[in-house]
Design a protein around this nucleic acid. Structure first.
Lengths: 220, 220, 220, 220
DNA sequence: TATGAATGAGCTTTCATTCAT
DNA sequence: AATGAATGAAAGCTCATTCAT
């Protein structure tokens, strides 16, 4: 068990080392030697615990995802059975930023990871399965909300995709141009948007939206 | 004019070369030699027209932005004075994807550009000013819509940030996991979300959203 | 003649361009393009007037030498028939520095030229013939002084070499560590040394110098 | 100790590699690959032990200086307390050439180093401090000689600069046109000049040298 | 387990020179 | 005479990875 523990500790050390360097300097600016230095280890040792640099990145993706999902679990446990609260437990958990250095680092890393995913098949696979996992968790939460609001679930897929995209976009803007969005407002803004999506759901798909949107008001 | 054209043509050739390679292989995977090959030129010549690799990237950011804004201008010219149509001219222009190879490439590039922006100050500056330009264009469009809907503009900043984030996120998902969102649904989904945001505007800021959200409709 | 003149003017322009860049940035830091810019010409044109970069350097060596010898001629013309004055006309002409920008540039160039001469046979040849020309001019001047002082000319060769070395060394120090020698003192210091050499001449070659030097005083 | 030795040995190997290539081909003609080949190492390894090419050069400057000063220490240890002998221990140590391949290489290197010093601030700094170190060592030696000869030390600075310049110039001529000076005569010639300088010292500063010089002896 | 020396491939960039115009 | 676009060969440097210890 001490053996197993040592290995796990080392791997975690290394993954955290990559996270910190990646957040500050990007993937190309994160040579193994810098990651090793950040982790307090030597370059050679990284290859003892990981087959290659990419393996560390893959594990980082999992780690970031796992951390976000842990936050979700915690919030979910404290949430009542109210479907809205459960849904927001999810979005708040994923959009929590500025709270900790780790959360900020994770957001910055996520952008770098996405860039790698564009052209590295292995990274792309892992990255996609992260997105799919989020979608899988999100789907029942959203279904419950729609049910509670008396809406149909016909365009559920699009709504899930939209929320997923929104989450990515918020990470993006938080990492790159935090001054665009008032500090800490991300989660709150996202809640508004999601409320909007759910409200819009009922009209979606059957109308030419702009005209309809304008007319809807007139009927008031 | 032919003189001016020669230089401009070469630079455009090079920028397009970077765009294509960048979309497929990422920034680190886009060596000057590959960009030159893609552009049908020699590596040395790229440095004749550009001071360095980063300069090409900066020009690419401008080019992508310019192309998107051209699409916006076109749509705006064809749009009536209806504030909703004008707003959607903007979002549709920015989210149009799958239409052309260039548009898809641009979306993929945007992710790579963002990753560079995280740690390259010059790229970050240009990237930010792109986001700010979008926000600047978006603000009056959204203000008009809110006015037409009889809503206040008090939380305009957050709404603009939200839409900007959404656009980035959609590019992200389109580039990385297009199967999450049904083909070509991005622009339509975005319209729904924006309608939702505007509708949500009136309640924003005064209520604790999760609790309120579920009940809001019931009270109507 | 206008044709001939044009060509001569251009070549001089180019050589002066190299001199200025060479003095500031060294040979490796003096690309053809920079020389052309300094000369107000285009890179292609330099190769029209010179076969290659090295040719310009060779002509620069001649130009610097010619300028120094012109200064010598001028001073010699104004000097009386006093052998010492004629000798100092030579050393002063070669060590004049700080007087003009050109003279300072020339000193700095001379160091760069020497460095090229170490490994470029053609440069080395020209450089050596410059030194030999100086030696040739110096020899009769020194002979006359020795004769006037009633000294033998037996170690003339060494004395000439010594003065030549001193001139090079002064250029060296002037270019690199001007604060070591009080401003403008080079020529004056050199005069002192040369007086010393001539005075020492008579004892040179037959004694073990240190012992002798010490004893010489005792005999006073 | 073996650990310390390994690193020190490698660095010395590399510095010597640079010295040999530099002496033959100049700085621009001494690519890292050639230095590595000369040292029996691979190019990548040079960057493992040195941050860059310039760092190797800086270390070479120190090494050459250190070697010369070691020779000086040796000679000084064997010298009596005679001030002349001690002074000549210095000049002989610095002008010893033709004795070893290393000494010849060092002289040729010195010219290349000077050329770099003209335009590379870091090299210039190190080069200057070498000259200043020489001056610092030379000053007390010369002061003692002047005292022993009953001369004042009023123009000590100029005399030190003059001797320093002479040493540089002799290296220069030795490296470039050794046939100008009879083989091995450098040190001997330098002795003569220095004796001359010391003798000239007493007249320095009070007379207009050229006019006076010829007559000086006659008046005695 | 751990180290860090060593390698080699690959990158960006510079530049003398050529040449069509 | 003059331009400046184009080439291609090199250079310095970085870094993932391997491996002897």
């Amino acid at each position: 068990m001490a053996e197993r523990s040592k290995k796990a500790i080392r791997r975690e050390q290394i993954v955290r080392g990559l996270m910190r360097v990646l957040a500050k300097r990007g993937y190309a600016g994160a040579p193994i030697s810098a990651v090793a230095r950040e982790a307090g280890l030597t370059p050679g040792l990284l290859h003892y615990y990981f087959k290659g640099k990419q393996q560390i990145l893959l594990e980082l993706i999992e780690a970031i995802q796992a951390t976000a999902l842990e936050r979700f679990e915690e919030r979910l446990a404290r949430a009542s059975n109210d479907p809205w609260k459960r849904l927001f437990a999810f979005t708040d958990a994923l959009l929590e930023a500025g709270g900790s250095q780790d959360a900020d680092d994770a957001a910055a890393c996520w952008v770098a990871i996405a860039a790698e995913a564009v052209h590295e098949p292995a990274v792309r696979r892992r990255y996609r399965s992260s997105l799919e996992e989020l979608a899988t968790l999100l789907r029942p939460l959203l279904t419950d909300v729609l049910a509670a609001e008396g809406r149909s679930s016909e365009d559920l897929t699009s709504a899930v995709a939209a929320i997923t995209a929104l989450i990515q976009g918020v990470h993006h803007v938080d990492a790159m141009a935090p001054e665009l969005a008032p500090a800490g407002s991300s989660a709150r803004v996202a809640r508004h948007m999601i409320v909007g999506i759910v409200q819009a759901q009922s009209q979606v798909g059957s109308h030419d939206l702009p005209n309809d949107a304008g007319r809807r008001r007139e009927h008031r």
